[in-house]
C-alpha cells in the first residue's frame, strides 16, 4: 500500500480576467469587498509538462445559467471542460489584502464543501467538490494585481492509500469495453461505471445506490468503479479534483475501497500523443470517516509560489492596457 499523492491545481489567469476585474471594480463593485461568485474551468492536459490548470477568463464573472438569472450572458464552459465554482475576495488596499482572514476563509470554504456533501447537494451538482477561492488586491491605477488562490481539499484522518499497481485504462478495459465507453462520451466531471460483459455503463454519481447497492463488494475484482475527468496526465498520479470526490464517497456512502478511473480524454489530439493511452486506473483505499455535522478536520490547498511557499503572486498588465503604452506600440 502506498499513500495516494495528488497533483495540485495551478491557476492560469488569462489577462482578460484582470481586464474584466478592473471594469467590475470601477463600475459595479466599487469599494465593496463582499465576496463575489466567479467561475473557472479545467480541461484535459495534453502534455506531462503542463500542470493541471484551473483557468479564469473574461467571462468568469458571468453567472451560471441555472442560477435563476434572466441575463442572457451566462458563463459558458469551453468544450470538454469542467466547471469549478469559486469565490472572489477583492480587497481595496494592500493592507486589507495582507490582513484578510485567509485561514478563516479557507476553513469556511472547506466546511461548505463538507456541508454540500452531507446535505446531498453534491449528488446533483458534483462541481461543488471543486470549489476554489481567490483573494485579490487590484491596484487598478497601475494595472497591477496581487492574488492568492486556494483549492481546499478535505483531509481524512489518515492519508488515502492506493493498493496494487497503477494500470492503464486500456489494460483495465478490453477493446469492446473501451469502444462502449467511447460511445458514451463526453463523460461528466465525476461519474460511476459498471462493467457489463463487453460493454460498460456510465452513470451519474447520484445513482450510487442503484448501481452499487447498499453494501458494495470489497473484493478486488468486484469493487465499485468510479471515475473523474483528470486534468493532469502523469503516469502514476491523479490530480486534485479526485481528493474531495473520494472524501465524498467515504462520507456519503462509507466506501472503503474503490476502483478509480482517471479519465484523461480520448483522442484529444489527432496527432502524435493521443491521450487515449494516458488514462489510468488504480484501487483507492479510504480511511473510515467519522460522520459529523460540521467539518472539523484539516484541509490543504493554498497555491504555492515557485519556492513552494504560500505567497501571493503578482501580475502587471500595464503593457496590454495602458493607453499611452498601447499608443506607443502601435505607431
Amino acid at each position: 500500500m502506498e499513500t495516494l499523492k495528488f497533483k495540485e491545481f495551478s491557476s492560469l489567469v488569462n489577462i482578460s480576467f484582470w481586464h474584466e476585474l478592473s471594469k467590475k471594480k470601477l463600475d459595479v463593485l466599487k469599494l465593496s469587498d463582499k465576496p463575489v461568485d466567479i467561475n473557472a474551468y479545467y480541461t484535459f492536459s495534453t502534455s506531462q509538462q503542463l500542470d493541471p490548470f484551473l483557468c479564469l477568463e473574461f467571462n468568469s464573472f458571468q453567472p451560471l445559467k441555472n442560477s435563476n438569472n434572466t441575463n442572457e450572458e451566462y458563463y459558458q464552459l469551453p468544450i470538454r471542460s469542467y466547471l469549478s465554482p469559486g469565490t472572489l475576495y477583492n480587497y481595496n488596499t494592500s493592507e486589507d489584502f495582507k490582513q484578510s482572514p485567509k485561514a478563516k476563509i479557507f476553513e469556511d470554504t472547506s466546511k461548505q464543501i463538507y456541508n454540500d456533501i452531507t446535505t446531498g447537494k453534491v449528488d446533483k451538482d458534483p462541481s461543488l467538490l471543486t470549489r476554489f477561492i481567490l483573494l485579490t488586491y487590484a491596484d487598478i491605477k497601475n494595472h497591477q494585481f496581487y492574488y492568492l488562490f486556494g483549492f481546499p481539499a478535505l483531509l481524512p484522518s489518515t492519508p488515502m492509500q492506493q493498493s496494487g499497481k497503477v494500470q492503464g485504462l486500456s489494460e483495465y478495459l478490453n477493446t469492446d469495453q473501451l469502444k462502449s465507453l467511447a460511445s458514451q462520451l463526453p463523460l461528466s466531471q465525476f461519474f460511476l461505471l459498471k462493467k457489463q460483459g463487453d460493454g460498460v455503463q456510465v452513470h451519474t454519481i447520484d445513482q450510487w445506490t442503484t448501481v452499487n447497492g447498499d453494501k458494495p463488494s470489497e473484493e478486488e475484482d468486484n469493487l465499485p468503479i468510479v471515475g473523474f475527468c483528470d486534468p493532469c496526465c502523469l503516469p502514476e498520479n491523479p490530480s486534485w479534483p479526485l481528493r474531495n470526490f473520494l472524501v465524498y464517497l467515504s462520507v456519503r456512502y462509507q466506501v472503503k475501497k474503490v476502483k478509480v478511473i482517471c479519465f484523461r480524454g480520448m483522442g484529444l489530439l489527432s496527432s502524435a500523443q493521443s491521450t487515449e493511452t494516458s488514462s489510468i486506473v488504480f484501487t483507492a483505499v479510504l480511511p473510515e470517516q467519522q460522520k459529523s455535522d460540521e467539518w472539523s478536520g484539516k484541509s490543504v490547498g493554498w497555491e504555492k509560489d515557485t519556492n513552494g511557499k504560500i505567497a501571493p503572486r503578482y501580475v502587471s498588465i500595464a503593457s496590454t492596457m495602458d493607453p499611452l503604452k498601447l499608443a506607443s506600440q502601435s505607431v
Partner: peptide, 13 residues
C-alpha cells in the same frame, strides 16, 4: 502573510 501556514501533507504531490 506570515500567519498563513499549511500542514505538511503526504497526499500532495
Amino acid at each position: 502573510d506570515d500567519n498563513l501556514v499549511e500542514e505538511d501533507d503526504e497526499g500532495t504531490l
